[in-house]
């Protein structure tokens, strides 16, 4: 039984036995658990006065306290939740847009339709992302999680569209695709069943990379004070630290720990991606 399963899902087997994937996924799981259960074990509210200010990490305050006596651990785990949520939703939207444009442009490769879609993509590629996001975010007085995600995703999709397009171009002249085409199967079904399904592992890796990118873009916006207008976020925690001269006062637990968690998460996802690359790519597999 089990053997049958692994024989059928060979890719999955190679993925889950890859050391880099195991190592990366473990860290990712820890950070996600921290975001999910951290707010439950935190003893304070993120905006409440939790004790003396300027305290380094201790058993009472895992990550110390801010200058005005707020608990950094509480703020970090709440902020992590918000940043991860925005990043995940934005990453999903960006991957979807990128894939749809990439599939369609690739399938109609060489036509004027493809040219137009690629022109659109190339325009968004050179547009400086953060500057555009600042202009958009600055004029929106209320920004919720979903609005944030849409803003971030709107500039994150172009490279995915390009990458997916070139993959589609190489797949679309395969014999089985031609067979589907002469069997007059609809384009959407060909894209779905012949092309998308063969690129599943690739798209999954694209999603991880998108997630990394959108989290970075999100945290930068939050740091500039243009994150969600309600609640706390990782970038906001660090913005406070910088504004209150937390770094100059040597309060590394306030200015550095929140970002460290995010950086470790993104590094771990990179590891997962390189591991998956080796697992999905038979040429690299034997190493």
């Amino acid at each position: 039984m089990a053997k049958d399963f692994w024989a059928k899902h060979e890719n999955l087997y190679y993925a889950l036995t890859n050391k880099k994937v195991i190592f990366g996924l473990t860290i990712v799981a820890i950070v996600f658990l921290l975001a999910a259960f951290g707010p439950l074990i935190a003893q304070y509210e993120y905006d409440e006065y939790a004790g003396q200010g300027y305290l380094p990490p201790s058993s009472d305050h895992f990550f110390g306290t801010t200058i005005d006596g707020k608990d950094v651990f509480t703020r970090t785990v709440h902020g992590l939740r918000s940043t991860l949520l925005v990043g995940a939703v934005a990453g999903t939207i960006a991957t979807l847009i990128g894939c749809i444009i990439g599939f369609v442009a690739g399938y109609y490769g060489g036509t004027i339709f493809d040219e137009l879609l690629m022109m659109l993509t190339n325009i968004f590629v050179v547009m400086p992302q953060l500057a555009l996001l600042i202009v958009i975010a600055a004029f929106l007085e209320v920004r919720g999680t979903f609005v944030m995600a849409v803003i971030v995703a709107s500039t994150a999709w172009p490279w995915t569209a390009r990458a997916v397009r070139s993959q589609t171009l190489s797949l679309k002249n395969q014999e089985y695709v031609s067979l589907s085409r002469i069997s007059s199967i609809s384009v959407s079904r060909i894209l779905r069943e012949d092309i998308a399904s063969n690129m599943f592992s690739y798209v999954f890796m694209v999603f991880i990379q998108q997630f990394n990118g959108t989290m970075l873009a999100t945290v930068q916006l939050e740091f500039l004070g243009l994150g969600p207008t309600k609640g706390i976020s990782l970038g906001l925690v660090m913005q406070n630290a910088v504004n209150w001269n937390g770094i100059q006062l040597g309060m590394w637990w306030w200015a550095i720990i929140p970002g460290l968690i995010l950086t470790i998460l993104i590094t771990a996802l990179y590891f997962v991606n390189t591991g998956l690359d080796a697992a999905f790519n038979p040429r690299l597999r034997e190493m």
Binding site: L216, F223, M238, I247, W252
Partner: peptide, 25 residues
């Protein structure tokens, strides 16, 4: 791993670390 770590850092966070070590410590 070191390069991955560098590439994963938000710019402003790296700035914070650089300030902390070279400017403060």
């Amino acid at each position: 791993p070191f390069f991955y770590f560098l590439a994963s850092s938000p710019y402003f966070w790296m700035a914070g670390i650089v300030v902390f070590f070279f400017g403060v410590v």
